[in-house]
């Protein structure tokens, strides 16, 4: 099974997902193409095997949701929650992504060549996200671990209530959220950024790590307010 083609005009999301969940043998790493997605939801959700999936067109909500091992390419725009809770593997959106892209992802790499909507990387738990364009407000909200690279601008309240995730922004930041602050870039940051841009693909090689700012948590919300133990 080298090249497998599906057409969503003829086959349902259920049938395709069922095939992707059960009919791919380990180690075969086939290439699967899905035509005519037409904004359908939950395409290629719950993959758990090494394979390459190319979706030719726009996808709805939760495309490649909870992805494990697979490499999914969306040749179009993606709806809400693309690659949400991804564990491993790679999801690449050639167009733009809607809200909550990569929400709570524990691992893997999500690349969005265009812009991402609100709450990109919300509750991130260890995954990496590279956005070629700009991200909307409340991105990286409560992000716990992992890295978000934003080559364009960031909307309001970036990194609100951040834990240990780190955000790199090249462009303008409309405003930082509670407890987020700009920090100096270290040698490690340069290396991390360089490696992420490399992994994202050749079109990202024009970005220089030194042009980015590092945003991380000031950690002042990690504990109840400092006065909590007062006793008057």
């Amino acid at each position: 099974m080298e090249n497998i083609k599906f057409d969503l005009k003829a086959t349902s999301v259920r049938e395709i997902n069922k095939f992707l969940h059960h009919e791919i043998a380990d180690g075969t790493a086939p290439k699967i193409t899905i035509e005519n997605p037409d904004g359908a939801h939950n395409i290629a959700a719950g993959l758990n095997v090494n394979c390459e999936v190319e979706i030719r067109g726009h996808v709805g909500y939760y495309a490649a949701g909870m992805n494990q091992h697979a490499s999914v390419l969306v040749n179009g725009n993606a709806g809400t929650g693309v690659a949400e809770n991804m564990m491993s593997g790679r999801v690449h959106v050639r167009g733009s992504a809607s809200n909550s892209a990569g929400a709570s992802a524990h691992g893997g790499l999500l690349i969005i060549d265009g812009d991402a909507g609100l709450r990109c990387g919300i509750s991130l738990k260890g995954g990496d996200i590279v956005v070629g364009g700009s991200v909307g407000s409340f991105s990286a909200f409560m992000a716990q671990a992992g890295r978000i690279v934003i080559c364009g601008n960031a909307g309001a309240a970036l990194g609100d209530s951040l834990y240990e995730a780190v955000v790199y922004v090249k462009g303008h930041i409309k405003s930082l959220g509670a407890d987020a602050r700009v920090e100096d870039m270290t040698v490690d940051d340069h290396q991390a950024l360089e490696s992420l841009l490399n992994q994202a693909g050749t079109s990202y090689s024009t970005h220089r790590p030194s042009d980015f700012k590092r945003i991380a948590s000031a950690r002042s919300l990690y504990h109840w307010n400092a006065d909590a133990n007062q006793e008057y």
Binding site: H41, Y61, W224
Partner: peptide
């Protein structure tokens, strides 16, 4: 001192929830 979110990260209203439930069903066949 962990204080967790009160809103789900990837859906906001009942129409979204319908798609989210659908996703959970798809993932678990």
């Amino acid at each position: 001192d962990q204080r967790s979110a009160s809103r789900h990260p990837d859906w906001t209203g009942p129409d979204d929830l319908a798609i989210k439930i659908h996703e959970l069903r798809e993932i678990t066949d």
